[in-house]
């Protein structure tokens, strides 16, 4: 199997004067969940459309599962599953018929098709309601059904555009577990776009942050936190004086100090010894209740990146 599931080289796409994607170069390894993070209009959907061969790039190139998206769009779509911006469900048809349709489209033999439909509907808790028209369902249930449809033909690569959008917390957690299982047990690659940073942090081995059509950063969530968010020290206590905080700010290992009510957050430059910082506070009469070391969340890294690029 190709160790790189998706490769893009200076991939660009414009619509008239609007540059939707601008020179995106990416490598998505096989067998991982890759998070594609960005605000609305960043170019996430355009990227998926380009990778599925539904749109042609203005310049640059992309290969998916080793095949060029411009010349092998049909073969790529054959081996990929997709849940796009909209669920794409036929709302007048029953849930079962929606899956039956795509089972036929993917040419799954009838007996196997029925077994897979049953298994997917049972695992998503929709089996009992399979005879109801999908249009009568809540958004979360439709989303679950659309995910089931994307998994029906057991694709090698799965494109999921905001898959947990509209789902309740339990259903979203179940889907995340399902994705992790798919990747671990079947080696499926998942290309996931999401606004939910906590979700990306939980399931993605690698993420890319995109804004205005440009990739700002690629790496594992930990790498991103180290590169952009860095380490932090949170100290809960009483008697923080301006003088003590000023001394902390002068230290070379300190990137910034913020006081919020009864605690301060000290942003650090990488992995440093924090004992001297605590000693400064103690020496200036601060009564310390608790000291916590931590890292910035992916959401904070994301927001920092967005701020920097403004």
């Amino acid at each position: 199997m190709n160790s790189i599931a998706i490769h893009t080289e200076q991939l660009s796409r414009s619509f008239g004067r609007v540059q939707a994607l601008n020179g995106v170069t990416l490598d998505v390894p096989s067998g991982i969940i890759f998070g594609f993070l960005g605000p609305n209009g960043a170019g996430k959907t355009t990227t998926i459309r380009l990778l599925l061969g539904l749109l042609a790039p203005t310049s640059g190139s992309a290969t998916v599962l080793g095949m060029d998206t411009q010349t092998h769009g049909a073969e790529i779509r054959q081996r990929c599953g997709a849940l796009l911006e909209h669920t794409g469900l036929y709302e007048r048809m029953t849930a079962e018929d929606n899956l039956e349709l795509y089972g036929r489209i993917w040419q799954i033999p009838p007996a196997e098709r029925q077994a897979r439909i049953r298994s997917l509907l049972e695992s998503t808790g929709l089996w009992e309601r399979r005879k109801e028209p999908a249009g009568q369902w809540s958004r979360g249930m439709k989303q679950k059904l659309a995910v089931a449809r994307a998994l029906l033909h057991q694709p090698q690569l799965l494109f999921l555009d905001e898959p947990t959008s509209g789902m309740d917390a339990m259903a979203a957690a179940a889907l995340r577990d399902e994705l992790v299982t798919l990747v671990r047990q079947h080696g499926v690659t998942v290309f996931l776009t999401t606004h939910n940073m906590a979700e990306a942090e939980k399931v993605c081995q690698q993420v890319a942050v995109i804004r205005q059509g440009q990739v700002l950063m690629v790496g594992s969530p930990d790498e991103l936190r180290l590169r952009k968010g860095g380490q932090r020290l949170e100290i809960v206590g009483r008697g923080f004086s301006e003088q003590a905080l000023a001394l902390l700010r002068q230290r070379p290992e300190v990137a910034g100090v913020n006081q919020v009510d009864q605690h301060i957050v000290i942003e650090l430059h990488g992995e440093v010894d924090t004992a001297p910082l605590v000693q400064i506070l103690v020496a200036h009469g601060v009564q310390i209740d608790e000291v916590r070391r931590g890292k910035a969340s992916l959401e904070e890294v994301f927001l920092t990146l967005m701020e920097e690029e403004k």
Partner: peptide, 14 residues
């Protein structure tokens, strides 16, 4: 209009 076209186009159908 019903947003089902893109999913159909993203399938293996020619």
């Amino acid at each position: 209009e019903r947003h089902t076209l893109e999913t159909l186009l993203a399938s293996r159908l020619s």
